[in-house]
């Protein structure tokens, strides 16, 4: 059975705006899945349904076999961790150490365990030397890692990252990739919303393309980038190397190595 499942879900915001219509998707443990599509396609709404921040207007969201409607957001969030698109929607402590520790302290985890867990999460996110720093003394791009550490420290089964690549430089993008690989390697699932098609190609095997409130395609990444119709409808672009390959009449190529061999 899938660990996380959306069954024919509709969602409308309180102002009547319908953000999702007939959406179904399922996730097993140990997957890395990228959700891609235009701004406004419904990507953030979908992931907020997964961790119980939003409850469906119609249909079911099942986490570990239980509908989110019957659980408090905090219960769902313990299993499905969500890192907001805007770190400032989430950060409220005055040092990075306290910010990362907050969830554990609230859960009344023993002090020495908190310290060890926080140190481990901070190290994964490149923040080990910033524990006493005020979160707002770091640039926006690194504040995002503070929120990722805060989610990692709670050890959820599923980790959701909402546009973690936005505004990141090359070393930070590599750090993100390492974090995602690490979480996957421990048998957990990572679901990531991103606009960076190179990142999608390198780090994910499965993609979900969303457009206009619904799922357009759910398939291996390589298949998505071969489907002209879907790419056009979702206003997506192929990675540059795939574009280059196609300009030479070579199809089915996503990486440098593949293109080098094919040329």
């Amino acid at each position: 059975m899938a660990y996380l499942e959306l069954c024919d879900v509709d969602f409308s915001y309180s102002n009547g705006f319908e953000a999702l219509h007939h959406v179904s998707m399922r996730f097993e443990m140990g997957e890395a899945v990228a959700i891609i599509g235009q701004n406004g396609a419904g990507k953030t709404t979908v992931v907020k349904l997964m961790n119980g921040l939003l409850k469906p207007s119609r249909g079911q969201v099942l986490v570990d076999g239980v509908t989110t409607k019957q659980q408090r957001t905090s219960q769902v969030a313990a299993k499905v961790g969500y890192v907001f698109q805007n770190p400032d929607d989430q950060i409220f402590q005055d040092t990075i150490g306290k910010e990362i520790a907050y969830g554990l302290v609230k859960k009344k985890v023993e002090k020495s365990a908190v310290k060890a867990k926080v140190a481990a999460a901070a190290r994964l996110c490149g923040l080990e030397d910033e524990m006493e720093t005020h979160p707002y003394d770091l640039p926006f791009s690194r504040r995002k890692f503070v929120t990722i550490a805060s989610a990692l420290v709670m050890d959820p089964k599923v980790l959701i990252l909402d546009e973690p690549t936005a505004g990141q430089d090359a070393p930070s993008t590599r750090l993100l990739a390492d974090i995602i690989q690490g979480v996957m390697a421990s048998g957990k699932t990572v679901i990531t919303i991103t606009h960076d098609m190179e990142f999608v190609t390198k780090e994910f095997s499965r993609g979900i393309v969303m457009a206009k409130k619904h799922v357009l395609m759910d398939a291996p990444i390589a298949e998505i980038f071969e489907n002209d119709e879907v790419l056009e409808e979702a206003h997506l672009k192929r990675p540059y190397i795939a574009q280059l390959a196609r300009s030479y009449g070579i199809r089915g190529v996503l990486t440098d190595e593949e293109l080098l061999r094919a040329m």
């Binding site: 235009q38 701004n39 997506l236």
Partner: peptide, 13 residues
């Protein structure tokens, strides 16, 4: 200053 950081590929272009 990073005018496209939150934008999808089409809006970026």
């Amino acid at each position: 200053d990073e005018p496209t950081s939150q934008l999808d590929p089409q809006s970026t272009e």
